[in-house]
Design a protein around this nucleic acid. Sequence first.
RNA 1: GGGCGAUUAGCUCAGUCGGUUAGAGCGUUCGGUUCACAUCCGAAAGGUCAGAGGUUCAAGUCCUCUAUCGCCCACCA
Length: 910
Amino acid sequence: MESLPNRYHPNEIETKWYTVWEKAGFFLPRHPQTGKPIVCDSASKLPSQKPYTIVIPPPNVTGVLHMGHALNNTLQDILIRWRRMQGVPTLWLPGVDHAGIATQNVVEKKLAKANQTRHALGREKFVEEVWKWKEEHGSTIVKQLRMLGASCDWSRERFTMDEGLSRAVRETFVLLYERGLIYRGDYIINWCPRCQTALSDEEAVHQEIEGALYQIKYPVEGTGGFISLATTRPETMLGDTAVAIHPKDKRYQHLRGKKVILPLVKRVIPVIEDEFVDPEFGTGIVKVTPAHDPNDFELGIRHGLERINVLNPDGSINEKGGPYQGLDRLSARKKVVEDLKAQGLFEGEKRHLHAVGHCYRCHTIVEPYLSKQWFVKMKPLAQKALKAQSEGKVVFLPSRWTKVYTGWLENIRDWCISRQIWWGHQIPVWYCVGDETCLLECKQPIVSREDPKKCPACGSTRLRQDPDVLDTWFSSWLWPFSTLGWPRQTSDLRYFYPTSTLITAQEIIFFWVARMIMAGLELVGQVPFHTVFIHGTVRVEGGKKMSKSLGNVIDPLEMIDEIGADALRFSLVMLAATDAFLSREKFELGRNFTNKIWNASRFVFTHLEKDRPKLTSGFWDHEEKLSTIDKWMLAELDQAILETTECLEACRFFDAANIVYHFFWHSLCDWYLELVKPVLMQDAPSERKQAVLSVLTFVLERSLRLIHPFMPFLTEEVWHLLKERVQGDEVSGETLMYAPWPSAQTKGKFKREQEKVNLFQEAVTGIRDLRARLGLKPAERVGDVYMTAKSENVQKAVSEFREEICFFARVDRLTVREKLKKEVGMVGRVYHDLEIFVGGLSEDGLKKEAERTENKISELEQLVCSIDRRLQNEDFRAKAPDEVVSAERERKKNFEEQLASHRENLQLFR
RNA sequence: GGGCGAUUAGCUCAGUCGGUUAGAGCGUUCGGUUCACAUCCGAAAGGUCAGAGGUUCAAGUCCUCUAUCGCCCACCA
């Protein structure tokens, strides 16, 4: 057997295993009885057992893996691998989102480098270019997910613009249109002048900026007087069609029914009264621009005002803006202010903090803009989604996110779904542009699942499809069922829908999670998933979000290259229990753990070289061959198994990782491995050695299973190395991926052993502490170490460990207190009812120990005092549960005994 | 402006039903490498649980207020 390097080198091992797994089809869901892959629309019978399904939050096709993805997908992979090991048919369905605006931007940028524009190219050619780009670069993130170890079923990989999903999008649009849930109309939407498209409310991100509040004067018609009003966007006055006051505002009663002259454009506009106006804000008079402000738009409807759109799609002033035509909105703002100043109508400006919408993509300030768009009527959908939650059909974890979800749904507004871009699902609506005489009848748009050939009204074949495409999220919200074949009733849809768990970040609860729930309920009639787990946001140290634009990224791919995917995964889970602040150093945690597992395994292997012992759980039938420490080890393993399972069930990833970490490192390596070393070092074969090897290999093997969901590559590698070195059916099968998830077997029957070892550990720690404090070198033989124990039980337990304690601290005699009194230079420490003494001390050492003991005594005295106070309280005795009261009494007794021992010891030292 | 969350060791965070002397990792200090791993082992030090009230026999834990920080949402021009 070749010798293994003393450090773990992950790179080749990870590549090797991923290839093996994928080729072998291990990621496909499997029939629990036959073990055969479950293929979509297969003729074979579906299992009766409920599957475990996760659909991936599809990353953008333009994306590269960042830490957020790494965390998100690690958590999904942990659940999937864990359930797979439990023998559940498990599907993790991967895919990629076409990311309309983002992708279009990327390709446009590429064209710009070649001095090209999409307009010059034309729509058809441009879309071809995007597809070409997608073929070349679109699988980047998918490859990176593989590097992370994601055990997705790649045979089911989907793309939001592939044929099936496009059909689902069309079906949805038509269905919702038929149900009266999609409509088209002129409304104020968020317009990004740079992307030149409408955005949904969620895509217009409010950010606080420091603007100015400008106060200006409008002359009142026919009176020679003026009114003052305040605005943050003076240039929009070009589109004013009224000014408004509060009907009860005493200051402005004289303005009722009056008209004002709009400066610069000289338009005469009415003074209207509306409750909406807040008399407290500004001057109490507000300019009304129905085409450029959502409130003013509503005002305009109530008062029948004209809507004058003064902006071009690129944000410049259009012909309605007279002399300002052609100026960008911000230049126009300056010019308007200047001109007002020149005319003496400007009354000043003051700094003003306010939240302004920014394009989520390019961060340009968006303009409220009047235009004709398609909308989804959200209230009816939201009702269903709220009901599903209140009935417990969807559960959010951690539960506080529930309120975020319901709060949004309760205040939902209609969803603007049309986008004026070219990359995406073109809206399945056609308009007849044929026969002029037919125009009246043909005004009705043709909304169709199939491309229509002719106008159903006039028969004209001159049809024009709506040029807009749908919001990317209009395909994403169908993801949990469109990927399974919907609207076709595939076997996948029947078997895997609804899915089990959705794992995602907080940012897309509105964009995606809530909308998926609405779509699932409306279109399939069931929630798309039962549990939504929201994980923390990954940030860099200092608190900023980690993002490419801030240049503060810790690249997960670099980390994989340096320390391996397993180490990255484990570190992330340990670090990102809540919102996490990361730094490169923190990833050492995972790296060190991989190395620890590697080396512990290597150590075990060195003792397996000779005879390829049988790895068996058979020792359960021969308990008499197991020592206390063996039984303790097995009990610890079981505890780790139970706790890890419990945590995974509750999506408590950090706790689960923490448990396996401590179990492996501290219980297995620091205690068990160290304790059995002397046995293993013996050259001669012995029954004891056999027993130890059995337990050791068994525990190692079970640990590998337990750790596998977190660190799949390393555990698979070590598992195979172990397999080569032992015999027996405990290590069978081709892969650890399908090794059954461990179950507890000791069922508490080694409780006594656990208690004994805990006591022993305390004793050993005490001895080490003493030795360290006394400055004894490890090899230095000191006088004697004595142990005394008051109760017989403890005495027995301790004598059982004489051998082990010798190994650490040389217990030469087990004796009793009486004998000790005769010795000189003793120092002692008390552990419950166990005492340890070391002899042969200097004067100085004795003095220090006396001081320590005095401190300890006063600490204990205080404790006893406070317990006493409690016990003397009548209310406590009367109202506290009996077991609490008796526990207090017990504690007091304990402390008093310790106190007595320490006092006696103090005498010894003096 | 509204909502949510946080505040516990030098740092990052656990702490479940209110009940033992409040825990871990990192960092620090001290000691240690022939015998798997210095990416290691052993030990220690380190806490007014943000502050103030309240409920309770009992509060890190429940309630109220205050302060600071973070996040999300929002059409006061």
